[in-house]
Design a protein around this nucleic acid. Structure first.
Lengths: 339, 339
DNA sequence: CTGAAAGCGCTTACAG
DNA sequence: CTGAAAGCGCTTACAG
């Protein structure tokens, strides 16, 4: 029967070997004889021994803990990403310590302090911006940081995003090909790189086609703001015939609001989102949207993180992953559209 | 400027005091003079010092880490709960280490081993069942466990749930009062206490009113299963005129499917869910549902956990929290219904 | 291959 | 109030 706390010394006593021998048996690659290994395993099993991760962390300097900073989870994209991240990291023997942060400079700063106090091996920040001062502090401590789904101006940090500029452009081209004349944009939060990049790509492609947007409003990645923006878009006698919304979470609000106003989505007004969260495929929304490939984004994030933790310092990498436009029925489909 | 790793000894040297003095300054309630305190704070600030949580954990036996086991996050109830839990715990100086677990006995078992290796101060298991063997092992190690949104047969663990039996009964009464004649139930997973309890309360109230259910099908808390169940319910010439669905996540699938089949939800067929996730309030679903008060459930969970961590061993507590029926338009509203 | 010993960064009696 | 010292449970050179 297991007792309150079994240590390597207990196992050593039972197995009749030294405490160092026990440690070696649990250290991959250490040299131990088959005989010792067997004795130790038997004793460990009998006592219910598992090496204390914290003690190991103290001496090895590796905690096998990754700090994850998230600002909010109401956008379904993040829970999905979190689940994938956790699974991928767990498969590599790491675990996620969660920190929720208000998206303010002060908040992030305090969180970073906490993170370091816990001796995390690396930091993944999702949907959170980070100044170059924090980037620098982390580097000084030798802690790799990767930004997930957020770019960073200037130097310093690795990050993984989808190809937001290209994605915004794709949406514009789709909407133009669909024959829309009055194309509006309820943008992602302009305080975030994703919101800005999607908007830039979108407006750029519109301009390249010699078109001006019907209107552009910052939706702040917020449901209430998106609802207000939709209402204001239709305040004038003639509203838009298409709206590109900066993410799916807001697009659902836009669709709800349009229906409330008696418009038929996909006929009277086309709506296109960004993310392709699971809900976008559900019947009541059937949202046409630019997919952010969560799986590949997570894989890239984990790969960047692991090579930095295990391989030592290396220059920051910026990875962009292309996503496809997923065509459903919330927006008019151009004649002969393939892909 | 901060260097790679600042220790209490570094601070002591700069402040001109002993290392123990530094430690005391960062230990709430320890006796230190104002003068020492000031010197140490100044030095710590200058060097960017923060006590190493892991080292503290080793000697104090308290890691200030709570292990959270979750099975899935696709049901929006869990991300919301996770965010609340993380915030509440963070406010108390604890953090959440995430473990994703397949909902199998083997999986949970391995996860529990990991959890203990990390020396967590407590374990919260959400949407996960746990055998009494695991409960016992945790108790032996002196680690408090509380089950969130899941009951447990037999002894052993503390748990927090909503009043599922009462909730199921409320739904039945509402549907009967609404004049429905053919009331079906797409149940929550019968492998989980929540699914069983809601069903028991529902069927009990039906029976008390002298009514038999139109049909009962296990929806497994799964979207695809709920869709299939809905289809099968309407395979016969005459389908149900009301469906109580075991959680909101499935209820959305039921509504999508009904619409696809050309039924008007709230008129042809009433649908009632369970949870009141944020999405239930959204225009396209407007789901009538039994609310699980996440806030209060989280508060209770944190309170149970903290009193067990800080107050030492105590008998398991079972807390049930009442939730209200939130009436929207997905189900016919009985004449003169108030509340 | 194996054991004795130092040390990771702290907290906590113990003297003073 | 303060400092010297032991010890938390490990890993990792270092001899043998």
């Amino acid at each position: 029967m297991a007792q309150l706390k079994v240590t390597s010394a207990d196992v050593a006593r039972v197995a009749g070997v030294s405490q160092s021998a026990v440690s070696r048996v649990f250290t991959p690659g250490a040299s131990v004889s088959q005989k010792t290994k067997a004795k130790v395993h038997a004793a460990a099993e009998a006592l219910g021994y598992r090496p204390n991760v914290l003690a190991r962390a103290m001496v090895s300097g590796k905690s096998r803990i990754i700090g994850l900073v998230v600002a909010y989870l109401d956008n379904q994209f993040y829970p999905v990403a979190l689940e994938h991240l956790s699974n991928a990291l767990q498969a590599q023997g790491y675990h996620i310590l969660i920190f929720t942060a208000p998206n303010s400079t002060d908040g992030i700063d305090k969180v970073m302090q906490d993170l370091m106090a816990y001796q995390v091996d690396g930091i993944i920040a999702a949907s959170v911006s980070m100044g170059s001062d924090l980037a620098q502090r982390a580097r000084q401590q030798g802690i790799p940081v990767v930004l997930f789904n957020r770019g960073q101006d200037g130097e310093g940090l690795s990050n993984v995003t989808s190809a937001n500029v290209a994605g915004g452009a794709k949406v514009a081209e789709f909407l133009i090909a669909g024959g829309h004349r009055r194309i509006a944009h309820i943008a992602g939060w302009q305080g975030a790189s994703t919101g800005r990049d999607r908007q830039a790509g979108f407006l750029g492609a519109l301009e390249a086609a010699g078109r001006a947007p019907f209107a552009v409003i910052d939706g702040m990645y917020d449901r209430a703001a998106a609802i207000a923006a939709t209402r204001s878009l239709f305040a004038a006698p003639e509203g838009p015939d298409a709206i590109f919304v900066g993410n799916d979470h807001m697009a659902f609000a836009v669709i709800d609001t349009l229906r409330e106003m008696g418009r038929v989505v996909g006929q009277d007004v086309s709506v296109v989102g960004y993310d392709d969260v699971p809900m976008a495929a559900w019947g009541s929304y059937a949202l046409t949207t630019l997919r952010q490939p969560v799986n590949r984004m997570v894989e890239a994030t984990v790969a960047l993180m692991l090579e930095r933790i295990e391989g030592g310092p290396m220059p920051p990498a910026k990875i962009e992953i292309e996503g496809a436009l997923i065509v459903r029925s919330s927006a008019r489909i151009p004649e002969g559209w393939t892909q």
